[in-house]
């Protein structure tokens, strides 16, 4: 069973943010690089885990491989400031786009390998590597006898597949992945 209720609030926000980022970049599938970017954008991970790469660096890596303009840029070309529209909507409705009430993460009952994240104007299927992130995170959390999946579990899921795009980004960013693993294992023992 995959649902957002099994994620701790910060991890839930990371998953939702990954989905909105992939959607804004016009991607049809939610893949690992957006989980990594969402992790880096938010507050630092629990000590001693340090991602070792900034959101700006990850964004630059993603954009170097993105040929289509982002929604934000397309809207700006039409004279619409996406951030301003969202800010005014938040003022008017007191509802944030990443409000978990508006989002759902579910596995298809007839196609069990298909996990979909859906929310306002977003319905995105996790690609194979993205699905692995969620499944590994769930497994790690369960093995640690924790009731909720944390952001560090998501990072564990990202590191578990060395062939994923997020792993490539970390290597290109000269992140010491071995050190990251060691930090995560130390966190795991104390969590």
């Amino acid at each position: 069973m995959v649902t957002l209720t099994r994620f701790a609030p910060l991890a839930r926000r990371t998953v939702i943010r990954a989905g909105t980022l992939a959607s804004e970049y016009g991607r049809g599938r939610l893949s690992t690089e957006f989980f990594l970017l969402a992790l880096a954008e938010d507050q630092p991970l629990s000590r001693p885990v340090d991602l070792g790469i900034t959101a700006a660096m990850i964004r630059a890596e993603i954009e170097a491989r993105t040929h289509a303009p982002r929604d934000r840029e397309l809207l700006a070309a039409l004279g619409v400031d996406l951030d301003e529209v969202r800010r005014r909507t938040l003022d008017a409705t007191s509802t944030r786009l990443d409000d978990p009430c508006l989002w759902q993460l579910r596995r298809s009952p007839v196609r069990p390998l298909r996990i979909t994240l859906s929310g306002p104007a977003t319905e995105i299927v996790l690609d194979e590597s993205g699905r692995k992130v969620i499944e590994v995170a769930q497994g790690v959390s369960r093995r640690g006898h924790r009731t909720l999946i944390d952001r560090e579990d998501l990072l564990w899921g990202l590191l578990a597949d060395a062939s994923s795009e997020s792993a490539h980004i970390l290597r290109r960013g000269n992140v010491d992945v071995r050190r990251l693993w060691t930090d995560l294992q130390r966190w795991y023992r104390t969590a």
């Binding site: 809207l75 619409v80 909507t89 409705t93 786009l97 306002p120 104007a121």
Partner: peptide, 11 residues
């Protein structure tokens, strides 16, 4: 623009 409209409608 359509995506943004859907997003605003939901909120």
């Amino acid at each position: 623009l359509r995506k943004l409209t859907d997003e605003l409608e939901a909120l």
